[in-house]
Each structure stands twice: as structure tokens, then as C-alpha cells.
């Protein structure tokens, strides 16, 4: 344990690089997923169509999709032998981002839909009565749900930064390139380097804590 704390306090450059990469990858994935999930979730919420309930059920079921299943899916697509093989994406950070985006999309979309649903229906009626058209009404409802949607972003980020199976599968845990906190923990644990694993785990928790404190404070205002 003391060695673990030493590693953190000394700001070991490799450890810091891994931590920075984890944060950057999760933030990128989360940003991209936000740009997809909020418009898509809104489109689903604001339109009624056949099979909407089924679709929402499916999205909610996908909250708990195992990371390795997403990993396998992405692997099959971007492997050389797969349909997107010639892009050479496998074992690159881009592959991890693609996987993480797919992983967190359902939860972010589902929570976006819930957030919009949580907006009082009388608010929608009020907007319509004040002469808002469909888009103006939707924009208002989205704006009213902004804090609840921040919750969706927090959940997405949390899932992205903590997943390991996916990064291991499509990132390959390449030192200095695709190694993240979680894959490093997995490797170091299997090598018996428990102190280093604990240090990495503490850093991961610390990042998650800081991010969620910042976002939560915004949400509570």
C-alpha cells in the first residue's frame, strides 16, 4: 500500500501518461456519444411511431450489455478480415473510442429519453399554448431536461472510463499507445504487480470521483 501511494505521489510519468490517456479516451467517447445520444434520444422521444415502446425496451436492455460483447462486435467489424478491415483501426485508440461510444450510447440515449419524459407534460402544453411549433417545443423541453441529461453524461463517462474488456479486446493494451488504467490494472494484476495495480485503481477512482463531483455540482445548482 505504501508503495502504491509512493507511485501516485511521485507522479511516475508512465502512470500519469496512462491516466491521461484513460481520461482523454473516455472523454472523447463520452463527447461523441453525447452528440449522438441527445439528438437521437430526442427524436425517439418527440415522435410517436410503431414499435417505439419495443425500441425503448431494447435500448434499456442494452444498458447491461457486457463490454466484451461490444468488444467482440467491434473486433469482428474492424479486424483485417472484417468489413472495415482496410481502415487499419484494430489495436488503435480509435478502436477503443468506437467501442466505448457503442457501449455508452444505449445508456445515454435511454437516460436522455427518461430525462425528457421526466419533464412535466403541462410544460409541453404550456409551450404549445404560447404558440411554440414542434421544434420550439422540443427545444424548450430539452432545455428543461438539461440537468437530468447531465446525469446521462455522468453515467456514460463512468461506464466508459471503467470498462476493461472492450479496451483489452480492440485496443490490445499496447504500451504507450492503447494502454489505459483498466487494462494496465488487468495486466499488472496478472503479472503479480499488486502495488502498481492498486495505485492505478486509486487513480481511476480519483478521476471518476473528480468528474462526478464536478458534474454533480453543476446538476444540483
Amino acid at each position: 500500500m505504501t508503495k502504491a501511494i509512493e507511485l501516485i505521489v511521485s507522479l511516475d510519468p508512465e502512470v500519469m501518461q496512462i491516466a491521461g490517456r484513460s481520461l482523454a479516451l473516455a472523454a472523447s467517447s463520452c463527447a461523441i456519444a453525447t452528440l449522438i445520444a441527445i439528438p437521437l434520444g430526442s427524436v425517439i422521444h418527440f415522435n410517436s411511431f410503431r414499435g417505439k415502446r419495443l425500441l425503448v425496451n431494447i435500448i434499456q436492455t442494452l444498458y447491461s450489455v457486457p463490454t466484451v460483447v461490444v468488444g467482440l462486435f467491434v473486433f469482428v467489424f474492424i479486424s483485417r478480415a472484417g468489413p472495415l478491415g482496410n481502415l487499419g483501426l484494430l489495436f488503435t485508440p480509435a478502436a477503443i473510442i468506437i467501442g466505448q461510444v457503442l457501449l455508452v450510447l444505449p445508456i445515454m440515449m435511454g437516460l436522455t429519453i427518461s430525462a425528457l419524459r421526466g419533464v412535466d407534460v403541462t410544460l409541453t402544453d404550456t409551450a404549445i399554448s404560447l404558440g411554440a411549433n414542434r421544434f420550439q417545443t422540443a427545444a424548450l423541453v430539452i432545455k428543461e431536461a438539461r440537468f437530468a441529461m447531465l446525469g446521462a453524461v455522468i453515467m456514460g463517462f463512468g461506464r466508459a472510463i471503467s470498462e476493461v474488456g472492450l479496451s483489452l479486446m480492440v485496443g490490445g493494451n499496447i504500451r504507450g499507445f492503447t494502454r489505459t488504467l483498466t487494462t494496465a490494472i488487468s495486466l499488472e494484476t496478472s503479472k503479480g504487480e499488486l502495488e502498481l495495480s492498486i495505485a492505478l485503481g486509486i487513480i481511476l477512482l480519483f478521476i471518476a470521483l473528480v468528474v462526478s463531483i464536478v458534474l454533480n455540482r453543476l446538476q444540483q445548482r
Binding site: A24, S28, C30, I32, F177, R221
Partner: peptide, 26 residues
Amino acid sequence: MKITISTLAVLLLVVGSLGALTACEG
């Protein structure tokens, strides 16, 4: 609050793109 929210959004995007850049740095 308005400012912090938009700042946060921008920050998220900046960190994201920086992340993509550093990730390709190798």
C-alpha cells in the same frame, strides 16, 4: 450556471479532441 454548463460542454469537446490527438501521437 449557464456559463459553467457551456464551458463544461466546450471543455468536454476540447478534452475529447485533445484525447484523440494524443491517442494518435504515438
